[in-house]
Design a protein around this nucleic acid. Structure first.
Length: 441
DNA sequence: TCTGGGGTCCTAGGACCC
DNA sequence: TCTGGGGTCCTAGGACCC
């Protein structure tokens, strides 16, 4: 059996741990730049606020809701603090790893694990309820757990657990194991609510008269093998209750790619400003590669204009460069990123977003060296170890590239920070350090 | 008239996920 | 005024190999 732990309204729940006054209130967390909604409390969901809703639409939704329900409802909006969420996620995952076997972290707020087949249903339920209770008590984060024969069904089970809890019943755990029970659940599951079936595939399936998960699971196997690609075939088999391929699906434990990208606070036009942003992103990419002990084989840089500004000419492009020798040291990654930017930057356009992606990622010890490359890798590695060590000890970005020093014209306006949570996570130490060193970069 | 058969690797783009 | 950021996997097609 496969279990899935899924944190409830994760970012909002993290904020509530540090500010209990948010409990019971309608709360949303906004993306970078306070652009759109990325997390909603149950109260906010009940108001009809959709995931991804742009921030500027929130006030009209709130006032509309207040009018039609004749009550004055205040919506609390918070700026995202991803460092805090990553820290809380790590705490959740660490506790889980102690409690279950074969934990596979699927996202910042979700993880699959394996349960022994032999356990009795009642015993299984009791254990899972205990787990829900411990996560709430020790970390403060509410979670829902779904248990089923495979991951696709475990996903459905966790949705049911969440729904039951939202409507007042249930204890955060749902066990989906008997064939009759599975058949009943599939009948009430719309085809686009199935994990792995998004808007495009759902539209295709509906064209063929398939509207529910049950209808899909009843299609003849021959039809499925002719009409569906391998991923959709896997989903089909799992809906039919067949065992998944077990965990984990891949034996590669490190990231396949590392991305850092941002939407700028406002439109920027100068190449030097775009270059500074790209330098910062590349620096972070390199740091992350090193913490995972991997190297990048290629670096991609992309830039885009603003899709929403019809009065300006739109331009978007990307460039991928292959490294002579895979690397993770900051100067090399930044150099390739800036070379790539040189290929795609065009004067006369306004830029809204940019990003740096490391791909062809391999482990440091499996690097193929270049015959004509005379770089002293040992020396470079020692340099980066020293830089990482200093930044780890004194705070992020105390020591960085001089090219990246000074004003950051591309950053967003200061976010509406929740100071309690900020202090608790020990953030922003580096800004104090940078000030102290002013004039002597 | 008639033009093989079996591969690998890479890239771009599309679909999905949170 | 105002629309995020970070991932995975699969497939088709091109370029190349013998």
């Amino acid at each position: 059996m496969i279990g899935l732990v899924d944190c409830d309204n994760f970012f909002v729940s993290c904020e509530r741990v540090f500010d209990p006054s948010l409990e019971g209130k309608a709360v949303v967390v906004l993306s970078n730049n306070d652009g759109c909604v990325v997390a909603r409390s149950n109260e906010a969901k009940a108001m009809g606020i959709a995931m991804g809703c742009p921030a500027f639409k929130l006030s009209s939704i709130t006032s509309q809701y207040s009018q039609s329900n004749s009550e004055d409802l205040a919506l609390i909006t918070l700026s995202a603090q991803h460092r805090l969420y990553r820290d809380m996620s790590a705490r959740v995952m660490t506790l889980l790893a102690e409690q279950v076997s074969h934990l596979q972290i699927y996202s910042i707020d979700e993880a699959f694990f394996v349960l022994p087949d032999s356990s009795k249903s009642e015993e299984l339920l009791r254990q899972m309820q205990q787990l829900v209770w411990r996560l709430k008590r020790d970390i403060g984060v509410p979670v829902s757990i779904g248990v089923a024969p495979n991951r696709t069904l475990a996903k459905l089970a966790s949705h049911i657990a969440k729904r039951e809890r939202r409507t007042g019943g249930g204890n955060g755990v749902y066990l989906l194991d008997s064939p009759q029970q599975i058949a009943t659940v599939l009948q009430t599951t719309a085809i686009d609510d199935v994990w792995g079936i998004g808007p495009r595939l759902a539209a295709k399936l509906r064209q063929r008269g398939i509207y529910t998960a049950a209808q899909f699971s009843q299609m003849p196997q021959r039809w499925v093998s002719l009409q569906c690609d391998t991923t959709l075939q896997r989903t089909y088999h799992e809906l039919c209750g067949q065992e998944g391929h077990g965990l984990p699906t891949s034996n590669v434990s490190h990231s396949q790619s590392v991305t850092v990208s941002r939407t700028f606070g406002h439109l920027i036009t100068e190449q030097s400003d775009v270059a500074q942003a790209v330098t910062t992103f590349a620096e972070t990419v390199a740091e992350q590669l090193r913490t995972e002990h991997v190297v990048a084989g290629s670096i991609t840089v992309w830039v885009t204009g603003d899709r929403h500004r019809e009065d300006l000419p739109y331009y978007a492009n990307s460039c991928q460069l292959r490294l002579d020798t895979p690397a993770s040291d900051t100067p090399t990654i930044v150099q390739y990123a800036l070379d790539a930017l040189n290929h795609i930057y065009r004067r006369g356009y306004a830029y809204r977003r940019a990003g740096v992606i490391a791909t062809n990622v391999t482990t440091t010890d499996s690097v193929q060296l270049n015959l004509f490359d005379h770089c002293d890798y040992a020396r470079r590695r020692r340099l980066m170890q020293a830089v990482d060590g200093i930044n780890h000890h004194y705070g992020r970005r105390v020591l960085g590239l001089a090219a990246n020093y000074g004003d950051r014209p591309w950053t967003s306006t200061p976010a509406k920070l929740n100071s309690l949570a900020t202090q608790a996570a020990g953030l922003y130490i580096y800004s104090g350090m940078v000030k102290k060193n002013e004039g002597s970069p």
